[in-house]
C-alpha cells in the first residue's frame, strides 16, 4: 500500500536524495513555446504543488513526467521505488528531437512505469468495471499474478470506501467516486511518484472534500506526489513545496505557507490576488 519507507539511517545533515529531477525542460506546440525551461526536484515523500494561471504550462510539465508529451529539450531523471533494484533512468529529450520515436521505448516505458497519473476528467475505462479498471494495468501490462493484484485492488477499493462498487461501471458512479477509482487505479500500478492533474477541477463542489482528504492521507503515508491544482488552501496544507508556474517557467518556489502568504514576485502576487478576490 504505502511506498518504501523513508530511509532511517540517513544522516540528519544530508538531504533526502532527489527521486525526480527535471532539468531545463522545454516544449513547444508549433510556434507556441509552452515550456521555456523548467527545473525541479522532488525528494522522496515530498509533495510538490504546481500552481499558476491556465495556459502557464503546469499541466504540460505533469504530462511530460508521464511521457504523455515528449519534451523538446531538457532531461528527466527518475529513480525506482526501491533504489536497490531500480536504477535511476534519465531521458535526454534534446537527443530525441521532440519526437516520440526518438525516445527509446524502454526508457519511456520505465518513466511511465514509475509515474502514475490521476486525470482531471478521471478517464476511467467506461467498458470495464471498477475492479477491472484498477486491475488492467497491473495484470495486463505489469503481468503480476491476477489473484495477488485482485486482493490488493480490493483492499485499495475498501480503503476509499468503494468496495461495494467493484462490479459497477464508471457511469454508475458519481464524479467523486470516479476520481477515487482513478486514484486507486494509479496506486495499484505501484508507482514511484503520483501525478495529479487538477484532480478536483471537474467535480461538483460538495464532492471535492472526499477526494482532497484522500490525497492528503496519501501524502501523510509518505507517497511522493506532484499535484497541479487551483486549490490554494489544499496546497498550503498538503504540499511540502509549492511552485508558481507562469509563461512556461517556474517563477518562484518554496515553502507553501511562506510563499502563499508572502510571494516574492509581482506575477505571483497578482495571481494569488486574483484567486483570492475573483471579483
Amino acid at each position: 500500500m504505502s511506498p518504501t519507507d523513508q530511509p532511517t539511517d540517513q544522516p540528519a545533515d544530508q538531504p533526502t536524495p532527489a527521486l525526480l529531477t527535471v532539468r531545463g525542460l522545454q516544449k513547444s506546440f508549433g510556434a507556441n513555446q509552452v515550456l521555456q525551461s523548467i527545473d525541479l526536484t522532488v525528494a522522496r515523500g515530498q509533495v510538490l504543488a504546481l500552481i499558476g494561471p491556465s495556459g502557464s504550462g503546469k499541466t504540460t510539465v505533469l504530462r511530460c513526467l508521464n511521457g504523455l508529451e515528449i519534451a523538446d529539450g531538457g532531461t528527466i531523471e527518475i529513480i525506482g521505488a526501491d533504489d536497490a533494484t531500480h536504477a535511476p533512468v534519465t531521458i535526454d529529450f534534446a537527443a530525441a528531437h521532440g519526437s516520440r520515436s526518438g525516445v527509446p521505448k524502454k526508457t519511456l516505458g520505465t518513466l511511465r512505469d514509475r509515474s502514475a497519473m490521476v486525470f482531471q476528467h478521471y478517464n476511467l475505462f467506461p467498458h470495464k468495471t471498477v475492479l477491472e479498471n484498477v486491475m488492467e494495468g497491473p495484470v495486463v501490462v505489469q503481468r503480476r499474478p491476477r489473484a495477488e493484484v485482485e486482493a490488493e485492488a480490493l483492499a485499495l477499493l475498501e480503503r476509499v470506501g468503494l468496495s461495494e462498487k467493484r462490479d459497477s461501471y464508471p457511469f454508475e458512479l458519481s464524479g467523486g467516486q470516479q476520481q477515487r477509482v482513478g486514484i486507486v487505479r494509479a496506486l495499484a500500478l505501484r508507482p514511484t511518484v503520483l501525478l495529479f492533474d487538477e484532480p478536483t477541477s471537474a467535480l461538483d463542489p460538495e464532492l471535492v472534500g472526499d477526494v482532497l482528504r484522500l490525497i492528503k492521507e496519501l501524502a501523510a503515508e509518505g507517497w511522493t506526489m506532484v499535484i497541479v491544482t487551483h486549490e490554494l488552501e489544499f496546497a498550503r496544507e498538503v504540499a511540502s513545496e509549492v511552485a508558481f508556474v507562469d509563461g512556461g517557467t517556474i517563477v518562484e518556489h518554496g515553502d507553501p505557507k511562506e510563499m502563499l502568504r508572502n510571494p516574492q514576485h509581482e506575477r505571483t502576487r497578482q495571481f494569488l490576488h486574483r484567486l483570492l478576490f475573483p471579483f
Binding site: N66, G67, L68, G109, R112, D113, A116, M117, F119, H121, N123, L124, F125, E136, G137, V140, V141, Q142, R185, A186, L189
Partner: peptide, 19 residues
C-alpha cells in the same frame, strides 16, 4: 483521454488500441 489513460497504465499503442 482514453488513449492517455491506456498509455498512463503502461500500454503500448497496439495494446491500447485492442483493449
Amino acid at each position: 483521454g482514453q488513449w492517455e489513460a491506456a498509455y498512463m497504465i503502461g500500454m503500448s499503442h497496439r495494446r491500447a488500441l485492442t483493449r
